[in-house]
């Protein structure tokens, strides 16, 4: 255990002493909050012009979390860079010389990345919630004590954290930050979005990791999906576990 804890403190030192990882975290926070403010502000003005169905379906919690989607890209970048830069810079050799047990090295890496992602997600999600609800205005907004609001917030935190961890597993498989981001960013933020808006395909597309997790972020569970918040969490956890396992298998085979 003490060997693992020194491996974790090694990873923590590496994570905080490179600008790219630190900035991706700051960017995650700033972008999420800024978009929440902007989006909330627009909604405040646009609400009166909405159709009656639109007003009935208005979910201030989910609307407030729209900004998180962009912040999440930054968190995915963080996870990918944390793992992938080991391979792309050759640091992996000095890292494995220091922590030659690959299972221990990988566990320390994932624990470190996930812990940082969790901390940043907690801060970012709460800040985003309050920023968005303030901007939407007291007439329409949600309070954190409202039915489902806290659950959606927890869901958003779990979603962001697991998506980052999933990305670390993928980066360990692909070993290239550029390739990993080239696959993950379009998958999460375009392909999945498009597929989930095609009525026929959506039945399947909701099972993609980010779509499954996203269901958790809503105040009211959507009616159009088979999954609900909890099965969505479960599915995203399975995706993450699979990516982590694939990453471990890849690292064990790494030959340098």
């Amino acid at each position: 255990m003490s060997a693992l804890s020194s491996a974790v403190s090694f990873e923590m030192t590496k994570a905080r002493t490179v600008r790219s990882t630190v900035w991706s975290l700051i960017f995650c926070f700033l972008v999420s909050v800024a978009i929440a403010l902007l989006f909330g502000w627009v909604l405040r003005g646009a609400y009166d012009d909405m159709s009656p169905e639109g007003k009935a379906g208005f979910d201030p919690v989910a609307s407030g979390y729209n900004g998180l989607r962009l912040g999440m890209i930054a968190l995915v970048v963080f996870g990918v860079v944390l793992v992938g830069s080991e391979f792309s810079t050759g640091t992996i050799r000095s890292s494995l010389a220091a922590v030659p047990d690959r299972g221990r090295f990988y566990a320390a890496k994932i624990i470190t990345g996930t812990t940082i992602a969790l901390a940043v997600s907690v801060i970012t999600t709460f800040a985003t919630f309050f920023a968005a609800q303030t901007a939407i205005g007291s007439a329409r907004n949600a309070s954190i004590t409202d039915q489902g609001a806290l659950q959606a917030t927890m869901g958003a935190i779990i979603y962001m954290t697991l998506l980052c961890t999933f990305s670390m597993g993928v980066a360990a498989v692909l070993r290239s930050p550029a390739l990993s981001l080239g696959i993950l960013v379009p998958l999460f933020f375009m392909v999945s979005e498009i597929l989930n808006n095609l009525p026929g395909v959506q039945k399947v597309a909701q099972f993609l990791p980010d779509a499954a997790g996203q269901i958790m972020m809503r105040g009211d569970p959507p009616e159009s999906t088979v999954l609900n918040g909890w099965t969505g969490v479960g599915l995203l956890t399975l995706w993450t576990a699979a990516a982590l396992f694939a990453g471990y298998a890849g690292l064990r085979r790494w030959d340098g």
């Binding site: 020194s6 491996a7 403190s9 090694f10 030192t13 590496k14 002493t17 490179v18 600008r19 790219s20 830069s85 810079t89 050759g90 640091t91 992996i92 050799r93 000095s94 890292s95 010389a97 220091a98 922590v99």
Partner: peptide, 25 residues
């Protein structure tokens, strides 16, 4: 072991590179 001069992250300072390694062991 000195296996390769460039097994270092280019964005990390000399001090922090060694400080991390020190922590690991």
């Amino acid at each position: 072991a000195f296996l390769e001069a460039k097994a270092v992250h280019p964005g990390r300072s000399v001090y922090h590179h060694l400080a991390g390694l020190a922590k690991s062991n």
